[in-house]
């Protein structure tokens, strides 16, 4: 059971090591119920690894994850999807050969209950379930504005549309927590503005958003709280207003920029 003010997701000392580096280093994340919460940090800070840990694609080296009042550290990725954790990918991972609608329908997979017999004999229960699934998928496509493309192969969509398709597919899961990994990457300014509006519409009491994004304007406009990672360590958590004046954060970003500059000179 979740208390009204209990956080939706918490991690305790969450850690992931790779040979020679600690990608996520003893992170204690607290994601409250509702709203948009950002995770920022320089390249290689461990943001995607954190998302992989939360969605069950990577197993922690140490630490625990609780979601909606239950410890999910040992749960597999597909179980977590069923529990209400959905995500998009920094490197788009749509099912390119399937149609746009079929992609979104995969998001409804955990809710399909028909037995094999009902499927093979096309029983009314199966037909009704498929009709509901298609209606749900169409609603998700409406939400992101891709209804007109429902029957097209997903690979035929433009880059920004593929990102929106990933959001629709994740929203079809009716998630409690939606992890967006750099949703604005590769989008033009107009698309980014539309995406911001979409994120605002999606964020609700039911769906909490955890957002990784390099576009700082986007993050500052949308987020209720910001967590900053640097070399896997959590160096700040607070409001978007406070993050700018935090010396450790400024240093992390300046340090990263300096390093990039040096590399450009020497490389």
């Amino acid at each position: 059971m979740t208390l009204p003010h209990a956080p939706l997701l918490t991690t305790q000392q969450l850690t992931r090591r790779y040979a020679g580096l600690v990608a996520v280093d003893h992170v204690d994340l607290v994601v409250p119920q509702g709203g948009v919460h950002a995770v920022i940090g320089p390249n290689g800070a461990g943001k995607t690894t954190l998302f992989n840990l939360l969605s069950g694609l990577v197993t922690p080296s140490e630490g625990r994850i609780s979601f909606a009042g239950a410890d999910i550290t040992a749960q597999s990725a597909h179980r977590r999807a069923g529990l209400g954790i959905a995500r998009t990918f920094q490197n788009i991972r749509i099912f390119g050969a399937m149609t746009v609608l079929e992609n979104v329908l995969t998001g409804l997979h955990p809710r399909l209950r028909s037995s094999l017999g009902a499927v093979i004999f096309r029983l009314p229960s199966f037909r009704a379930e498929e009709r509901d699934a298609v209606a749900g998928a169409r609603a998700a496509l409406d939400l992101v504005g891709l209804s007109a493309r429902a029957a097209d192969p997903a690979s035929s969509l433009a880059y920004g549309d593929q990102r929106r398709l990933e959001i629709a597919r994740a929203m079809a899961q009716n998630p409690k927590l939606l992890l967006l990994d750099e949703p604005a990457a590769g989008m033009n300014p107009a698309e980014t503005v539309a995406l911001g509006e979409l994120v605002r519409r999606i964020a609700s009491a039911h769906t909490t958003i955890l957002l990784v994004e390099h576009d700082m304007g986007f993050v500052m406009r949308l987020s209720d709280s910001v967590t900053v990672l640097n070399f896997g360590r959590q160096i700040f958590t607070g409001t978007p207003g406070a993050v700018r004046s935090e010396p450790a954060v400024v240093e992390a970003y300046l340090g990263a920029r300096l390093a990039a500059k040096l590399q450009a000179h020497h490389g």
Binding site: S55, G56, L57, S76, A77, H78, A81, G82, A86, R87, F89, R93, I94, F95, G96, A97, M98, E102, T106, G107, H109, P110, R169, Q173
Partner: peptide, 14 residues
């Protein structure tokens, strides 16, 4: 079909 294309993404879909 989803598994055939991308088993990781399919797992994330549940």
């Amino acid at each position: 079909e989803a598994m055939r294309e991308d088993p990781t993404a399919a797992a994330v879909m549940g």
